[in-house]
């Protein structure tokens, strides 16, 4: 298990280095001079030269990459061109909000999706199953920002039940929770349908297994079989999808945060791209990549824990 964990983490680090190099390369492939973009059209050549030197742009490209890696290893993701604040500070300031949004969205989607997926299996090939199928596919096919806009119009503007923008008053838990409902709803809704379909498909396969026939032959209730025996087997492939999906959730969060003007990674990166604030863009993407890799690795390790067969293969 330990050897497996070390191997998985090592692989993640390798991926991260490749991503960082590619990112650095991409910034230099894009036409235009970061210094003149940062200083604007009225900057003098001398000023640009000073900035280039400060950003390390006068060095050979390999040396620049080396410096970049060195800085990142020391926890320095660069400095905001406009505010002169460290990029990492800005990220850490807003990241918990995005994380909270993602976790809440995926959490309620998972709870409801598993329930509906199981319901579709218990009542398979009935009206319930077919209705759930149609509903699931419908919510999967609508992008989260469209749901966000309509949810905002309906619940915030017309019904005036929930706040339309922001993340709630600082320090006021109830206000923050109310501000979280609509974004989390919009972000998670598609996943409810997706997870329900996924659990249903995975579950139907498991329900054909001989061990389910054994459970039936011993007179277990169909509901107990589905929830106590089949779900444990069916959830394993769903977990790895969930981890990859969490990355997707975080990128959809960019749109949802924009719609609800909610501070977070999404709003940070959109603003940075608009202002050509490259250090912030690069730092944020790098941070999110690292976070994403961490989630996927954790999921792999979790699967190894949940499935005793995988666990034993790894042990030997």
């Amino acid at each position: 298990m330990l050897a497996y964990a070390i191997r998985r983490v090592g692989l993640s680090l390798l991926i991260l280095v490749v991503v960082m190099t590619a990112m650095y390369g991409m910034v230099f492939l894009v036409p235009g001079d970061p210094a003149s973009l940062a200083l604007g059209p009225r900057a003098t050549p001398e000023l640009k030269e000073v900035l280039r030197e400060r950003m390390g742009l006068d060095q050979p490209i390999l040396a620049q990459i080396g410096i970049f890696f060195g800085n990142v290893l020391q926890g320095d993701l660069g400095t905001d061109v406009w505010s002169k604040r460290p990029v990492l500070d800005q990220i850490l300031e807003v990241f918990p909000r995005t994380l909270l949004l993602g976790v809440v969205a995926l959490g309620w989607a998972l709870a409801l999706g598993v329930l509906l997926g199981c319901a579709a299996v218990v009542w398979r090939d009935t009206v319930v199953d077919r209705m759930l199928g149609v509903l699931s596919v419908s919510v999967i096919s609508v992008p989260s920002f469209v749901i966000a806009i309509y949810a905002l119009i309906l619940f915030a503007v017309w019904l005036n039940w929930l706040p339309a923008i922001g993340a709630g008053e600082a320090g006021d838990f109830a206000s923050q929770a109310r501000a979280l409902i609509l974004p989390a709803f919009a972000l998670g809704l598609g996943w409810v349908g997706y997870l329900a379909r996924l659990i249903r498909a995975s579950m139907l396969e498991v329900m054909e297994a001989p061990h389910i026939r054994t459970a039936r032959a011993f007179g277990m209730r169909e509901g107990d079989i589905v929830f106590r025996h089949a779900l444990r087997v069916a959830i394993v492939p769903t977990l790895s999808v969930l981890a990859v999906g969490f990355g997707g959730i975080l990128s959809s969060a960019v749109f949802v945060e924009s719609v609800f003007s909610r501070p977070g990674i999404g709003t940070l990166i959109t603003a940075a791209v608009e202002k050509r604030n490259y250090p912030v863009v690069m730092g944020t993407v790098l941070f999110m990549t690292a976070f994403y890799l961490m989630i996927v690795t954790t999921a792999d390790l979790l699967i190894a824990r949940l499935d005793p067969r995988v666990r034993d293969v790894l042990r030997s």
Partner: peptide, 21 residues
Amino acid sequence: LRGKSVAMVFQDPMTAFNPVL
């Protein structure tokens, strides 16, 4: 009645049990 009055032993013991319980 199943399991209580009439019980069954299946052919393949490799797959007759749930692998994760």
